[in-house]
Design a protein around this nucleic acid. Structure first.
Lengths: 232, 232
DNA sequence: AAGTGGTCTAGACCACTTC
DNA sequence: AAGTGGTCTAGACCACTTT
């Protein structure tokens, strides 16, 4: 299985940049020059350049050439699922309750409207490391909760009722004091915990789900990466 | 200024997906079909499909076609600079000190090696909302600190000494108890604060800088986004 | 004027999937 | 066998930058 020519050209150019052969601000060899050197067409060389450009290594300037770019260290990529796959978890409660103030505000609920609450505790090495809550506005005539619980990924809960493709998730990370019941469940003291809140909204801005996870120190930090290696 | 044909085709296809015309799992019209419909070549249609694929809306399957994909809600994009541009900040200390244990471990320092410490307090609305520390291993014969302080972005401090292009930043977010001096400087009690640690490493894995920011509740939460809208 | 990237054409052959 | 995407060619004209 040999690599495509444009892939090999891209790898070669990437190597030249990362090893310092071309540094920030330099102009890369032109498309025509490389097409000649590799005895190929301009389109193939161009495809290689597009890859490097999508990686942020270079930027095309019409009339000038491809310029080597400095890496960005302010944009990070954070991967955060439910943490269910890598460790035990036990269901604690599934019920229909009146929401607290934060949930009511996040979901833009009517006065008196109830929510379905799914609460779980994530365990790792026999220790409770995270408390997970998910809230969905309760509507009469909803499909059975049991069926929805078969899905582990939060957005999947809505796959039937909405065109899943138009959903967006907003995340907010803070350090805050958990309520009494969470403290007791996790066995932590009266200290603030790393909290990740997620809000799922439709493209029209209508919130349809809210989740909150309280993470103990044993859960470990959230990790994110920036720079070229994060993209390649 | 008319848009390129491949851009218009991409916009049309994107619109069809986001409006629900094609839903998750559907196969999009083939390249040949669209090339005929738009009276253009296959290459141009293909370019439109590449855009949608890079946005995560579709995925190409050889022999089958382009399949509409479900949105990913586990990969988030977080933008986090120094927060200096949008508000006041005052320098507090710049000096050469022995590092604490965490800094020493992060920078892989030799026993007894000193670090340059830059400490600042970020203010917003007359309130101290964040405590910012940056640490750089101290070497004899370093360029003057004053000149380096003209740069606000952390990675820029190293632009001269390293090929900036090969640097990567690792970020860890946790909730932890700040040391005494930070508590006093921020005027907070004995509570845990949202902490963002960043570690700048070369492509060889050599750490060359470490920063730590303690954020109060007044600073606000860190925000990240996921889903299609975050990419377009 | 010469060189650069940006867009586009009209073919070609290949590997893969479906029927 | 027919249709799909994956790769590639050898041209073309355009807008832009530099000399």
């Amino acid at each position: 299985m040999t690599q495509a020519l444009y892939q090999r050209i891209a790898a070669s150019l990437r190597q030249r940049i990362l090893s310092g052969g071309h540094t920030v601000g330099d102009v890369m060899p032109s498309e025509n020059e490389l097409a000649g050197a590799y005895r190929t067409s301009r389109v193939t060389v161009r495809k290689a350049f597009q890859i490097l450009e999508s990686e942020g290594l270079i930027k095309a300037r019409q009339g000038k050439g491809y310029i080597v770019q400095p890496p960005k260290h302010t944009v990070f990529t954070l991967v955060f699922g439910d943490g269910i796959e890598d460790g035990g978890c036990r269901y604690r409660e599934v019920n229909i309750i009146p929401p607290d103030a934060a949930v009511s505000r996040s979901l833009l609920l009517r006065d008196g409207q109830l929510v379905i609450a799914l609460r779980r505790i994530l365990e790792r090495g026999g220790e409770s490391v995270a408390y997970d809550e998910k809230f969905i506005p309760y509507e009469r005539g909803m499909p059975s909760i049991e069926r929805e619980l078969n899905f582990s990924e939060f957005p999947d809960l809505f796959a039937d009722r909405f065109t899943s493709v138009s959903l967006r998730t907003e995340m907010a990370i803070r350090s805050q004091l958990p309520p009494e019941d969470v403290r007791l469940a996790l066995g932590t003291g009266g200290e603030k915990l790393l909290t990740v809140e997620r809000r799922i909204v439709t493209s029209e801005g209508q919130p349809i789900g809210f989740s909150r996870q309280y993470l103990t120190e044993a859960f470990g930090p959230l990790r994110a990466d920036s720079g070229y290696e994060a993209m390649v």
